[in-house]
Simulated scan of single mutants.
Amino acid sequence: MRISIWRTIFATLLFIGLTPTLLWSQTNAIKIEQYQALKLQHAGATTPQLPISEYLVSEKLDGVRGFWSGKIMYTRSGREISLPDWFIDKFPNQALDGELWIARGKFDDISALVRQADPDEERWRQVKFMVFDLPESQQPFELRYQYAVSHFSHLSPFLVVIPQQQYDSRQEVEQRLTTVVDAGGEGLMLHRRSAMYHQGRNSDLVKLKQYQDAEAVVIGHYPGKGKYQGMLGALEVKNPAGIIFRLGTGFSDEQRKNPPQIGSSVTYKYYGLTKAGVPRFASFVRVRLAL
C-alpha cells in the first residue's frame, strides 16, 4: 500500500516537472543539529588520473569552508557561524557546500570574522558565500553545477556559484594554474564531471597547486639570529607520518614576535619529499584554526 502511494507521488512530481531527488533536497535539509561534525567531501588527489576533458575546473579559493544547511551556516567541524540576517536573507532552503570568501590573500580576515560571536555587519558586506556543490543531490557533478547556476545565481549578491570551465588539454590547465598563482591565488580544483558527491576524501576531486601543502603540530621553537635576534628563528614541527623537521621561512615579523604555540597545528607548503620522507623546501603558511 505504501509503495503504491509513493509511486503515485513520484508520478505526480514527474508530471509537474520535479524530480524526487530535487524534492528530497529541498524538503529534507541535512539535520546538522544532530551531528557533532560535518562529513563533507574533500579532495583526495593532487594530480588528475583521467583525461583533462573529464573534469570541470575552478579556482581554489583561500577562504573558510562553509556548509549551508538550508537554515544555518556551519564550519567544516560543525560549529555554527553567526551571520547578519540580511546576508542570508535570500539563501535557498537547500543544502549548499561552499567557501566564505573575501578576496585572494584575505584568509586571515575571513577567519577572524567567522570566529566572531557577534557579526561585524559592516565587514560582512565584503564577504560572499562561494557555492561549489550540492551535497544532497543524487546527480553527477556536471548536472549539480548546471542546477546551481540556473537556480542560485540571481538569488543574492552574497551568494555566488563558482564558475566551472572545461579544458581539452593538461597544458591549458597548467596555463590557467600559472595565471591564478601569479595573480595571488592558491591553485585549482578539478571536479570529475560524472562524479557523485561522496563524503570524505574523494579522488574524483583534485586539488591542483604548484606546490603541496599539509599540516603539522608545533613541538618546539628555535630562537632567531641576526635581524631576528629575540624573535622566532624556526618552528620544529611533527607531521602525521611522525617526521620531525623545521619551518624557518614564511613568517611575518609579527608572527616571529608572537609565534604559534607549542601544540598548535600549522599549515606548511613544500615541494615533494626526500627519500627519508622529509618535505622539501618547507615553509610556514598559517596557523591551522579549529573552525
Rank of each mutant, 00 (worst) to 15 (best):
Met1Trp: 13
Arg2Ile: 11
Ile3Phe: 12
Thr8Pro: 04
Thr12Cys: 08
Leu13Trp: 09
Leu14Asp: 15
Leu14Arg: 15
Phe15His: 14
Phe15Val: 07
Phe15Tyr: 10
Ile16His: 08
Leu18Pro: 05
Leu18Arg: 14
Leu18Gly: 03
Leu23Val: 15
Leu23Asp: 09
Trp24Pro: 02
Gln26His: 11
Ile32Leu: 09
Gln34Ile: 07
Gln36Glu: 14
Ala37Trp: 08
Ala43Val: 15
Ala45Trp: 01
Ala45Tyr: 01
Ala45Lys: 05
Ala45Thr: 12
Gln49Asp: 12
Ser53Met: 09
Glu54Tyr: 11
Glu54Ala: 15
Val57Pro: 03
Leu61Val: 03
Gly63Val: 03
Phe67Cys: 04
Met73Pro: 00
Tyr74Ser: 02
Arg76Phe: 02
Arg76Ile: 09
Gly78Pro: 00
Ile81Trp: 00
Asp89Ala: 14
Asp97Glu: 09
Asp97Tyr: 00
Gly98Glu: 01
Glu99Val: 09
Glu99Asn: 01
Leu100His: 01
Trp101Glu: 00
Ile102Val: 02
Gly105His: 10
Gly105Ile: 04
Lys106Asp: 07
Asp109Met: 10
Ile110Lys: 00
Val114Ala: 01
Arg115Asp: 13
Arg115Val: 07
Gln116Ala: 13
Pro119Trp: 01
Asp120His: 08
Asp120Ser: 11
Glu121Thr: 15
Glu122Thr: 12
Arg123Pro: 06
Arg125Leu: 10
Phe129Ala: 10
Val131Cys: 02
Asp133Asn: 15
Leu134Pro: 02
Gln139Gly: 03
Glu142Pro: 09
Leu143Val: 13
Gln146Ser: 15
Tyr147Cys: 06
Ala148Cys: 12
Phe152Gly: 10
Ser153Met: 12
Ser156Pro: 09
Pro157Leu: 03
Phe158Cys: 05
Phe158Glu: 03
Leu159Pro: 10
Leu159Ile: 14
Gln166Trp: 09
Tyr167Cys: 00
Ser169Met: 07
Arg170Ile: 12
Gln171Gly: 07
Glu172Met: 08
Thr179Met: 11
Thr179Ala: 12
Val180Asp: 06
Asp182Thr: 13
Asp182Ile: 05
Gly184Tyr: 02
Gly184Pro: 01
Arg192Phe: 04
Ser194Pro: 05
Ala195His: 01
His198Glu: 13
His198Thr: 13
Gly200Glu: 04
Arg201Trp: 06
Asp204Glu: 13
Lys209His: 08
Gln212Ile: 04
Asp213Leu: 06
Ala214Met: 06
Glu215Ala: 11
Val217Gln: 12
Ile219Val: 15
Lys225Gln: 15
Lys225Met: 14
Gly226Tyr: 12
Lys227Pro: 10
Tyr228Leu: 13
Tyr228Asp: 15
Met231His: 12
Leu232Cys: 11
Leu232Thr: 07
Gly233Val: 11
Ala234Asp: 03
Lys238Met: 07
Ile244Ser: 14
Arg246Trp: 09
Gly248Thr: 08
Thr249Gln: 13
Phe251Val: 13
Gln255Pro: 12
Asn258Cys: 07
Ser265Trp: 08
Val266Ile: 08
Lys269Val: 00
Thr274Arg: 01
Val278Phe: 00
Ala282Asp: 06
Phe284Ser: 08
Phe284His: 04
Ala290Asp: 14
